[in-house]
Amino acid sequence: MNIFRLFGDLSHLAAIAILLLKIWKTRSCAGVSGKTQLLFAVCFITRYIDLFLHFVSLYNTEKVMKLIYISASVFTCYLIFFKFKATYDGNHDSMRAEFLIVPAAGLACLINTKFDAIEILWTFSIYLEAVAILPQLFLISKTGEAETITSHYLFAQGSYRALYILNWIYRYHYESHVDTIAIVAGVVQTILYCDFFYLYITKVVKGQKIVLPA
């Protein structure tokens, strides 16, 4: 474990917590893409499938973190699609998730470390995570604005994988550890946040709200 991965995971936890708090406190999921949250839930389940296969006692924080990620993301989907369904902005959350899932699954079968079920599920989860935020960014571009709390969620979510890139640089340099698939997908994922990061740093940090030219 290094500082970058630690802060990456903390940033990821913060993102999940911020979103849950926003929906729970405002009792509304306006401005939140349910599709992105579904894709994240799929990512966690396919990536941590080993938790279900050979369940081992919760003997370390890693297992606990995996269970937190899976349960929090499923609970978030429950809030969006069931509890606060009336506030779900389905009209603007219109990016076709199939256009993300099918290519990720196809690519996972073509480019992977080992052609076995668990490895392909893990690779699928990595590729899917890289593009899972797109419906959320698409929704913001359609509505033309993002609530400040949603901007904080996106900033934490984007920072998590950006910090992982620093973690991979660190591990390459000190542990000569390289996972090309995770690195390439992580770089693509972080690049997708670039224009949002620019807006966040130039606006939200100064107390303004993000409003896109509609």
Partner: peptide, 10 residues
């Protein structure tokens, strides 16, 4: 069967 290489990252 070969167990998937253990992934030590989340």
């Amino acid at each position: 069967s070969s167990v998937a290489q253990n992934k030590d990252e989340l």
